[in-house]
Design a protein around this nucleic acid. Sequence first.
RNA 1: CGGGGCGUGGUGUAAUGGUAGCACGCUUGCUUUGGGAGCAUGUAGCCCGAGUUCGAAUCUCGGCGCCCCGACCA
Length: 408
Amino acid sequence: MNQSQLFTKTLRKDPKDAVTVSHRFLVRAGFIRQLTSGVWSLLPLGLRVYRRIENIIREEMNVIGGQEVYLPTLQPKELWQETDRWETIDPPLFKLKDRHGKWLGLGSTHEEVITELARLYIESYKDLPKAVYQIQNKFRNEMRPTGGLLRTREFVMKDLYSFHASEKDLDTYYKKVVTAYTTIYKRCGLEVVVVKASSGSIGGSESHEFMILADSGEDKIVLCRSCGWAANVEVVKKSTCPQCRKALKQYRTIEAGHTFKLGTTYSHKMQAFFTNKNGAKKSIIMGCYGIGLQRLMATIVEARHDKDGIIWPQSVAPFDIHLTGLDLEDKKVKKFVQEIYTALKKAGKDVLFDDRDESAGVKFKDADLIGIPIRLVISKKTKNKIEYKERDKKTTKLFTRLQLLDKM
RNA sequence: CGGGGCGUGGUGUAAUGGUAGCACGCUUGCUUUGGGAGCAUGUAGCCCGAGUUCGAAUCUCGGCGCCCCGACCA
């Protein structure tokens, strides 16, 4: 697409209130904009990244047998009273009354809704195991939103729920989810540390957080550099590694995902039963697993940037290639740029073509800020060649048209 | 919820009781084009309300909004 037609523009200065790196760069580059505290719009560039993250997650959920659903945001009070969470869940629900005076909550999570469905469809051990997931908006009445997209009041979460006939089967599936999650972060260009965590108000027996090391993180973990053992500081008492007795070091991290073995906490309260082989009525054993998408997007920026801007991994970049045209008043140059643009599009590449009437400096600065992995420059200076530069490298190369298309 | 800070054009800021100024952006014109170009030109602002005062962006009170620290945290 032509950059002159882009809905957004870049900002030269950091927004006044932006503190974290991801907040500053995502706003400056025109990926996101705040509407009110903790509530954000995804703009064209931001939505492109979001969609690619969403697709990666969807693919990995499908690999482990997840079936996609879409559950309602408006949820009746009565359902939440079955688990005693209408009043107690924290952060609290956004609550509203309909025109008849009936109370509804905006879903902050979907255990109640999914368990309600499970008790309708799961009747026998023959119906188990099952796994369903959704990618859907969550509303949380947070005390204080923080760090741009890192903690918001409205966001999209991928939440997966699994149902099992035995603890053993849950354990087996849980391991698959951990593997899928690890793959998701890897595909998003992140290194993840999986730590044991407290399960908080959600309950259940075991819980893991998927942590990305970042100075702006809200969480702290201890990590053993020697053997790799790690845990949230909330659940660790000693300062030495329980595995190899070396010293543990503390790091700030962003929680980019969380998994829980729920056991029968919800199925028991909501009477979601199945009949086992012996004809006995048992509570369904459950697991739940969440990833916040906008937070993941911001986390990528926290982990991958330099002083000039974002460094998107190819897998989630808003475009594959940033094609920068200079000296566009020169007809030869203009023709050549357009030929290359067309050829790249034909090769299946998503290209942002900087056709704007701006100085070279402005274009380069914007390219660095936006962070598309490959920058191509065509100008009088490059003559019939194309300058090639990767966002995370300093060096440039000159390619002929054939060399370039060969490389793509 | 406790504590702190801040609201001035689109963005970032200055003026602390006396004519609201600067930079960037944006408009128009000319000149420019390899790391946020130059000249000229135009454009646009004191969060809202009440009070004090001859006079309020500035002081007081109330409201609204935003940010940060803590607490909290699927």
